[in-house]
Structure formats: structure tokens, C-alpha cells
Design a protein around this nucleic acid. Structure first.
Lengths: 243, 243
DNA sequence: CTTGCTCATTTTGTATGCGAACTCTGCTTA
DNA sequence: TAAGCAGAGTTCGCATACAAAATGAGCAAG
């Protein structure tokens, strides 16, 4: 029964974190790619880290499972979800439907304040890219998509997209090709320019193209697992564990 | 400590229901509009009904809250969510983005088996309509939209749409105009016909039109609540309680 | 050297108990 | 008559306790 390692909520230093706080902390860790697919979420460890009982941790884990961020195997605990290739395709299909439409909508109803926030965001992306701050860059490129939803003012879509972004992180960690480069630097800017011009169709096309490139950087082929040579089959583990 | 009133899971008569079973039961009740917005979900009652402890009920409620189907007020328990007009507009905006695209996609890749299932479903809708089985009709018209997602074979979208459908039920119960008629009978058939013709654009347009009609049947105006006459303000309660 | 078994340890799943917050009812007081 | 207060009763929030299941180590047998 040692002191909690992590501080409580953001508000009061001494307040016990709520289950939502625990949920958010784990969620953020997934977004920042510090938690990899398959990572085991042991209840006792989390309870000690946050300074609460397992009951609260369990509620947070239940919500993560509900959101598709974590997976539960009976009597074997909870782990960060490891999406299949099929699930990854479904995820990208959904984003390909949603986000081009969002970009188009925003282009048509944007305000100068919207534009200013988008410009500031892309400036931060550029700064992180030139400064070689890779962790920041990864986070910022994800948040660009969330910013579009936020500027649209639709909280439901923003929440939905936040979950999709987290799942996308897990898919990327699972299936990124070894030679993957980060997002092409100009793609977010192309979308911004189209929005600035109030050109909905162009914004839609650039977003669709951008998402296609994300997909192209993943290896989503369903290879036939007809390998009887155990050594060859198991020599290269499919990136489950943390390095 | 009486015997559970509701039977356990669908599988084994004597098995204790899991939290997912409890979640599903409440979810179905929302879809069937037997649970109205604001209905109180008392933990002890549910625990007794399902023959489990409050702990499991609490997990199910936590997931319902996460899904946006239930709302929690601190120290005052959990209730079925009562969406605001703003949330209802956001919900319909999202469906207006998603579902026309789904209809279009399905039209382009449909198989004869798909068509057969859609036809059978609409036949059941017609039967319920002519037989005056209103409860069945309401359920079936909702399930039509889920069937499209199911036929597309995208489990993520199907899950998403199931949640949106439940929220739509809650919005309809909250804001349906008093003179609302049910869905126009031909609209689902129009969508089916366009899919049968592999006409993606027509399917998209009919779905968009259908969703606009759903929205038109709701009263989503934000009236200024500047009413100081309490009698007039409270004489017509905004349909919270069960009739 | 491998395979199969047993037992201690760890981890999860569920129920129960206790304290805190809220609601409701009835009494007091102006 | 209406407002305010106090008490009991109810319901929720959380931690703890205990039972069931799985993991891993160690040992014995083939």
C-alpha cells in the first residue's frame, strides 16, 4: 500500500482520480503510442499507480473495452486491443467516408477564426518536423484530424473521431511497413489551403487522398498462412511486444 | 433475495447473465422504445431483476454511459439519456454524412443475396404496417438502416450505427412533433430499388431525403425560454414520463 | 532431452459491507 | 399559510474480501 505514483486528477493534487480520469490517461497513452497493441493492463498495477482500488480501474477498463481500445479475454485479463487487418480495413473505410465529408463541410462554413487555428496547428506540425521532435509530430498529425471535427462544432463527431484516431494508432503500430515514412508534409497543408479557399470539393479530394496514403503505408494483405516451417513462421514475430 | 425475474443469458437457462447481457437487454429496451429518456436505472432493482450483484449492473451501466445511452449525475444515479436538441441535431448531421454514403457503396457492390435480404425485410415492414403492429413496425424501420451496414460487411460501421440508432430513438421520444406520422412507407422501398438498379447516386439521394424527413418530424427549434408564466410553462410537460 | 504432472503463486471475477449523499416526510416557527 | 429544519429511510460510491481460474516452477517418468 504505497503512495500513488501518478498524481490524481488535473484539478486537485490530492483528489482521488475518477474512473474517467483513468480512462483518459490510458487513452492518451494510446494516442501518444506509448501503449502498444497487446500490452497487458494489469488491474492491480493500475490500481496502485493511480492510488485507487481495483474497482475503479475495472470500470475504466470496461469503458475502454466498450470503446474498442482494449480487449478482454475471460479470466486472462485486459490488454490494449490488437486490431486485425480486417478491422483495420474497416476502420480506414469508415474514415474514408467520414473525413472527406467533414473537410468539405468545414470548407463551406469556415470562419477566419477557424482558419487561424488551423494555420497555428500546421505551424506547430512544421516546427516539430524541423525540430526532429518525432513524438510531438506524431501526436500533432493525429490531432489535426480531430481539430477539423472540433471546428465543425459537432461534439458527437469529435468524440467519434477521437476513438477512431486511437484505433488508427493501434493499427499503425501493428501493420506499418518497415520502410514507412511519416505523413507527407504537404498533405495537411493542401487540405488547409482548400478550406481557406472555401473549395469544398478540393478539400474533400485532398482528404481522401491523404487517407489513401495512410492506408498505403500499412501492410494489409491477407497472406495465406500455409507455412509448415515453424522456424520460418515464428522467427519474425508480428510486432506484438514492446521493443 | 428473491429469484431473478428475468431469465439469464439466451444460452443457458441457469447461467448468471454477464454484464454484456445486461447491457444488451437495456440497449434493446431503448431500441424498442420501452425505456424512455430520463427513465431512472436503479442499481438495486436491476441487480434483483437479473439475479446478480450490483457490481455487475454497475459495469453494464458504465458501458451504457460510455456509449451515450445513459447519463450519470453524481450521487444521484444513472438514467436513460435525455438528448438535448443540440445533440439531436449533431446526431442527425452525422447520420446524414454516413448513411447516404453507405447506401451508395452498397448499391455498387450488392449481390443477389443482399437484395433478397433487403426485400424480405421490407416485406416484413409492410406486413407490420398493414397489420397495425406498430411496435414491430417501429423496430423494423430502425433495423432497416442497420441491415444496410450489416450487408456492407463492415462490423465497425454496424456497431457504430447501432449506437446511433439507439440515440435516434431517444431523440424521437423527446422531440417528435405531436402530429408526427411514421416513416413514409415508400422511402425504404425507393432506396431498395436504387440499390437493385446498382444506381449509387440515386440510392444516396433517397437516403439523404429519407433522413431529412426524419429530421422534419422533430421539433428542434431552440425556443427562447423567456417564459415567466410558470403555469403556462409547466402545463404541457415535455413528454418525459411514460404515458 | 523431452513430456507430463502437481502445487504454489499470481491474477481475475464477483459479492458484500460500510460510509456518504440525497430524498422525503413531518414538525416547528414566524 | 408558508417557509425552514431535522430525522429516518433510501440509494449511490468505493474498498475490501473471498472464490475461481490461469500461470509458472519444480520434479518425476519415459
Amino acid at each position: 500500500m504505497s503512495k500513488p505514483i501518478l498524481t490524481g486528477s488535473q484539478r486537485h493534487e490530492g483528489a482521488a482520480p475518477s474512473d474517467q480520469d483513468i480512462y483518459d490517461r490510458i487513452f492518451e497513452a494510446v494516442l501518444d503510442r506509448r501503449l502498444r497493441p497487446g500490452a497487458h493492463l494489469r488491474e492491480a498495477s493500475l490500481a496502485e499507480m493511480f492510488g485507487v482500488s481495483r474497482t475503479k480501474v475495472r470500470q475504466a477498463l470496461g469503458k475502454l473495452i466498450q470503446a474498442g481500445i482494449a480487449e478482454q479475454r475471460p479470466n486472462r485479463g485486459t490488454a490494449v486491443a490488437a486490431p486485425t487487418k480486417q478491422q483495420t480495413r474497416e476502420l480506414l473505410d469508415l474514415r474514408a467516408i467520414l473525413e472527406p465529408a467533414l473537410a468539405s463541410d468545414l470548407a463551406q462554413r469556415r470562419s477566419p477564426a477557424h482558419l487561424e487555428r488551423l494555420r497555428r496547428h500546421i505551424a506547430r506540425e512544421d516546427a516539430a518536423r524541423s525540430g526532429e521532435q518525432n513524438a510531438d509530430l506524431i501526436r500533432l498529425t493525429g490531432e489535426f484530424h480531430l481539430l477539423l471535427a472540433e471546428l465543425l462544432g459537432n461534439g458527437l463527431i469529435h468524440t467519434l473521431l477521437t476513438g477512431l484516431e486511437a484505433k488508427t494508432c493501434l493499427s499503425i503500430l501493428s501493420y506499418a511497413r518497415p520502410d514507412n515514412c511519416a505523413c507527407l508534409p504537404h498533405e495537411h497543408r493542401d487540405i488547409l489551403d482548400a478550406i481557406a479557399d472555401r473549395d469544398g470539393d478540393r478539400a474533400r479530394r485532398h482528404m481522401a487522398l491523404h487517407l489513401e496514403h495512410v492506408r498505403a503505408e500499412l501492410d494489409l494483405e491477407e497472406r495465406a498462412p500455409d507455412v509448415f516451417d515453424l522456424t520460418a513462421a515464428l522467427a519474425v514475430p508480428p510486432r506484438r511486444r514492446a521493443r
